[in-house]
């Protein structure tokens, strides 16, 4: 039976990572940027778990991935609170309007 192999998973991780980076770079909606961050973290997680499956890394990859998931949830909570504050102050979520401290 054919094996999927490490490289296939790494490719998926790479695609997720690149999509996340492009999402963070191009979206102007604050929440859209957060979604980009989630995609980046997921791309990294796929890599961690794939390495834990196919290399002697063993359990370390899964443990790290779990930490990433938990930290991502925490990050989302704080970032969302910041986004809500931003909305309260600017009445929009467009991050381009957050240039008030621009000199």
């Amino acid at each position: 039976m054919g094996e999927v192999g490490l490289n296939a998973y790494l490719m998926v991780g790479a695609v997720l990572f690149v999509c996340g980076v492009v999402c963070m770079a191009t979206k102007r909606n604050g929440i859209g940027i957060l979604m980009g961050v989630e995609l980046v973290l997921n791309g990294a997680n796929v890599n961690f778990v794939a390495f834990s499956r196919y290399t002697p890394l063993g359990l370390d990859g899964q443990t790290t991935a779990l930490f990433v998931v938990v930290l991502a949830a925490a990050e989302a909570a704080v970032a969302l609170a910041i986004a809500l504050n931003f909305y309260n102050n600017h009445l929009t979520i467009d991050v381009d309007s957050g240039n008030e401290l621009h000199g």
């Binding site: 929440i31 989630e38 997680n45 998931v69 938990v70 991502a72 989302a76 809500l84 909305y87």
Partner: peptide
């Protein structure tokens, strides 16, 4: 954990944020 925390938690939070903003 991915299903519970990410899909069930974080994304719900994000959608909630979308609604509020």
């Amino acid at each position: 954990a991915q299903l519970l925390i990410y899909v069930g938690g974080t994304v719900v939070l994000l959608v909630f944020g979308v609604m509020l903003t």
